[in-house]
Design a protein around this nucleic acid. Structure first.
Lengths: 374, 374
DNA sequence: TCCTGTTACTATAGCGGTTTAGTCGTGGTC
DNA sequence: GACCACGACTAAACCGCTATAGTAACAGGA
């Protein structure tokens, strides 16, 4: 049966624990115990088995292990938005990279899927769970009263919610403190003397947008300065319109904060074309830092939430949750629903700093399009 | 569509084909034949079985299937670069999004892993193959004499190489015609009257960079104009230095082409700070289009290779290869090593167009633009 | 001497499918 | 009326690994 003459790279038969067992003069069960570091074999035998396994270049079969009940070492993430959005969004790539980094190190892999609707997403979770395809999932793009939360709680699939706080039910979560970020921005602008702030807000379906709304209004009120929130919905087009509307007001704001880096750039463009200088006439800041905000002229003050670090923390936390869910089989210990916050940091750049250290290139013609505007 | 008789969502036992068989009054084997659309059961029985399977919400177990030899419906991708780079690079996110889109539709999932070195990458391929974790892989960041090519050929693991052409051995590949892209750029600038072009080149380890080097020199020679290639290595810092060096020349170029969007912006910044106007004093163009080039002031002329579409094509092609490798079990038909090229398109923007007005994507003809060549 | 405990394994039964070699009734053929 | 082909299933053997009884050998205690 055993063709000991395999050794062909890619050709030969798969080597199984049975092969090892035969060579070691024990049963497959003993090999299983040995390679999994479980008690039941003597140290001498274990070493002998391990040596043979290495020599035979044995690799465990994930399928067989999964079938026998072992974890599949995979976590899933579903994205309910068009692929186009993912491609352009700076946050996505960095977040995934952060996830990957931690997961890879622990020999986990990340499985992703793009779907159309939230229902599809829940359905995917359900199927992944039923098929035992993943050990856990990470939930992104949290919304208010998100239907995925109860669905996942019901399923009992280990899950980590990215976003919050306070809206992730009994599930553990990792989030950036958007209220804190908002205060950083408002306080910074207030210190510079601004007394009329505006915020161009993204899609209000998302929870973090709502949290910003609230914190923005509150903080401005505390400081006794004017706060205008202008809804811009999705995309850059909305940001352009919102910016134009803001500047058309009788009492136009002296500083504008945008909910994303793309929106910021769109808004800044409108401002420049209307002849407003940044930061002399209007200060500009972004809730999201990226290559876009860094390389823009002038560079834009932004909240640095380090998407990559965000991903790392999320992955680490999820793995802990999975680990815990595995061990607490009989003992009904606490469900480990802990939340972790990531501290937002304010990165001040020339777009809010009139006398900035780096003298931004004099506004001799930021819009070189050749079209003399207004 | 959760029925009220959810039968313990998350609690109940997993439903298997044995359950279906019992309900249908047949054996598990019959169920297997039925649900897989294989001959051997009558149409009536098949329908009955399918109905019961749906009613019981049966989900096949991927592990069991894989163990029994079925494909695992997963493709892998390994990235041998630091997570940081991925996060900042615009190409990555879009490419992955494109891959995902196609894979998801076909019920495949993408598995990614980040490693340190090319050796780790090959090792990962080897283990994935040995463990039957993936049905195929996509290879990115092709280099000259890439060690992964022979390794994969040897393994016999279906693989698709992103990049080329001509350096992917017997493996199928998808690539952007960088020589063509180069001609588009050079011809465009030559038509505008530029007679001294420079190219700020990225990491020469990558194959596509070499192909650009060659094409750039050749095309400029054909047109009888000066060509300067300035190596900048990795990152934006190198691009800044390279740009400064170019402009310090006695005969400074009147147009500069950069190998990536990030490099372009870094270079543009150097130019602006040195008082050179774009495009009046120096025209600027990028080999890579992205939000960065689009939103920069002035907007930057770039090669649009649509990373997302690139991903879609790659995924489609890889699935075909996997499909083929599966069916050609006995018959040793051709190994389907076909290559597919993606047509690069030149998107002309204000950074090369002094009197530019319309931001219309001006796609040039497939090859040279009328200028006589050898 | 009997009994209880360890230790180090072995034997065996799954996990949930797929697959191959039967088995059985039926109808057509000559 | 025996022969045969055929469609529709069944029985059983895997796939590779894990888990759980069970067993043999030996030690220690009463």
């Amino acid at each position: 049966m055993t063709t000991s003459t395999q050794s062909g790279s890619g050709r030969g038969q798969r080597v199984t624990i049975a092969d090892i067992a035969r060579r070691a003069g024990v049963t497959p069960a003993a090999v299983s115990l040995a390679v999994n570091g479980r008690p039941g074999v003597s140290e001498a035998t274990r070493e002998r088995i391990m040596a043979i396994a290495a020599e035979l270049r044995w690799e465990p079969s994930p399928a067989a292990r999964a079938l026998a009940g072992a974890p599949v070492l995979t976590v899933g993430m579903v994205l309910a938005r068009p692929a186009e959005v993912l491609g352009t969004e700076s946050f996505f790539g960095a977040f995934v990279a952060g996830l990957q980094e931690v997961l890879s190190r622990r020999d986990y892999s990340l499985q992703m899927k793009i779907v159309e609707t939230t229902d599809d997403e829940i359905d995917t979770f359900r199927r992944w769970f039923a098929q035992r395809r993943v050990d856990g999932v990470v939930v992104v793009d949290l919304r208010q009263d998100d239907a995925r939360i109860p669905a996942l709680e019901d399923l009992g699939l280990p899950a980590l919610v990215v976003g919050g706080p306070g809206h992730h039910g009994s599930l553990p979560s990792v989030y950036v403190d958007d209220a804190h970020a908002t205060r950083l921005l408002v306080d910074h602008l207030a210190e510079l003397g601004h007394r009329r702030l505006a915020r161009v807000a993204g899609n209000g379906d998302f929870l973090h947008i709502l949290l910003r709304d609230r914190a923005f209004t509150e903080r401005c009120a505390e400081l006794g300065i004017d706060a205008i929130t202008q809804d811009a919905g999705f995309g850059t087009r909305g940001a352009e319109i919102a910016t134009a509307e803001l500047m058309a007001r009788r009492e136009a704001p002296t500083a504008i904060v945008f909910d994303s880096d793309e929106m910021t750039l769109a808004g800044a463009q409108v401002l420049e074309e209307a002849g407003s200088r940044i930061p002399e006439d209007v200060a500009v800041a972004s809730y999201e830092d990226s290559a876009l905000t860094r390389t823009h002229r002038p560079p834009i003050t932004a909240i640095g939430r380090s998407a990559i670090e965000y991903g790392r923390v999320a992955a680490t936390h999820l793995l802990e949750v999975i680990e815990a869910s595995r061990s607490r089989y009989g003992s009904s210990s606490a469900p480990l629903q802990e939340s972790r916050a990531i501290e937002p940091v304010l990165v001040v750049r020339a777009s809010t700093r009139p006398g900035g250290a780096e003298p931004a290139p004099a506004a001799h013609g930021p819009s070189g399009t050749g079209l003399p505007s207004s």
